[in-house]
């Protein structure tokens, strides 16, 4: 599948944004984080900025962005519409919780409930994003049980790294934040390793024989394409540039998204709060590169059933 930059930015930025917002909401509502104006402004502001940037960038790949508001209507059948509705609904508790924290310095009582609702809606929205991909039966690399947990854990893990950095900058860092990030990163690595193993070993669901129904006569081989130039289907579904370097890019993703941030945060845990700022910033930069490579691979390694007709495996 063609990895559109707008969709990579959308899924990674909104994932990290919702992860950060969910963690801020939980720790704020629980009183672990102080209801300090600037901490709330920067933390919630960054979370909202990431979510909004992601949602806006997702409209850039539309042919008719001026009609985007129509995309909220079909939530009964479409995960994309559900994602849009959930994202908009989520802004209500985020706004209430943010106003309580930033302007009233209060994250208790009703604002704590808004925080709980924020965490729930962040979870629901990321689930919907993942299901857009996981529900497509045409792409075996997405239509499996590991796509949803990967989106959830990677959103939370990147959000947790941001939480470590922000809390350290405001002097409210706690080792529990780094521990949480380390656990989530380890879990994320395990999920992605299992995912890569699964897509490598799974048998293709369809072949040129079943696609054409001609397997009854023996082996089927493409003799002639319908045309000499690439059509929309081939450019959109037949992307194979990064697949050539998939092995190396997987190592890059595993190192920069999981191993390096994990080591940096473990170092912060071992050395105490003094190093937390530096380690948090370095881990953020590394994971930012890593999650973009991971998402690029998620698209580039995905093969589409329609390409079987064009003589490719899927």
């Amino acid at each position: 599948m063609h990895p559109a930059y707008s969709v990579i930015l959308f899924t990674t930025a909104s994932g990290a944004g919702y992860g950060l917002l969910a963690l801020l909401a939980v720790f704020g509502a629980a009183g672990v984080l102080p209801a300090n104006t600037w901490l709330g402004f920067v933390g919630i502001g960054l979370g909202v900025a990431l979510v909004v940037a992601g949602l806006l960038s997702s409209t850039f790949h539309l042919g008719r962005p001026e009609r985007a508001v129509r995309a909220f209507t079909q939530w009964r059948s479409s995960w994309l519409a559900r994602e849009g509705v959930a994202a908009v609904v989520a802004f209500a508790p985020i706004a209430i919780f943010g106003i309580g924290w930033v302007f009233l310095n209060d994250t208790s009582g009703p604002f704590a409930w808004a925080g709980a609702a924020t965490a729930v809606m962040a979870f629901v929205t990321v689930c919907c994003t993942a299901m857009i991909y996981a529900s497509l039966k045409t792409i075996r690399q997405w239509n499996n049980a590991l796509t949803l947990p990967a989106y959830l854990v990677l959103g939370l893990a990147t959000g947790a790294i941001l939480l470590v950095t922000i809390s350290a900058l405001f002097g409210v860092y706690r080792p529990a934040f780094a521990t949480l990030a380390v656990v989530l990163l380890a879990l994320g690595l395990a999920i992605k390793l299992a995912y890569w193993r699964q897509i490598d070993t799974e048998r293709p669901r369809s072949t040129l024989g079943t696609a054409t129904g001609l397997d009854r006569f023996g082996e089927v081989r493409l003799l002639e394409m319908p045309h000499t130039e690439e059509n929309f289907i081939m450019r959109e579904m037949g992307y194979s540039v990064a697949r050539k370097h998939a092995r190396r890019l997987r190592i890059v993703a595993a190192l920069t998204l999981f191993v390096v941030p994990l080591a940096l945060l473990a170092l912060a845990l071992w050395s105490g709060p003094s190093l937390a700022i530096a380690m948090g910033i370095l881990a953020t930069l590394s994971a930012g590169v890593g999650v973009a490579v991971e998402r690029w691979l998620f698209f580039a390694e995905a093969t589409h059933a329609s390409m079987i007709y064009y003589g490719r495996a899927a």
Partner: peptide
């Protein structure tokens, strides 16, 4: 008149039957 050109329908079709009109911006 309602299509926003998100192309998701073409992703969902295993037969490659839906095509994007890049000039009009719809499927």
């Amino acid at each position: 008149d309602k299509c926003i050109g998100c192309k998701l329908c073409s992703w969902a079709c295993p037969y490659g039957a839906r095509e994007y009109d890049e000039d009009v911006g719809v499927m």
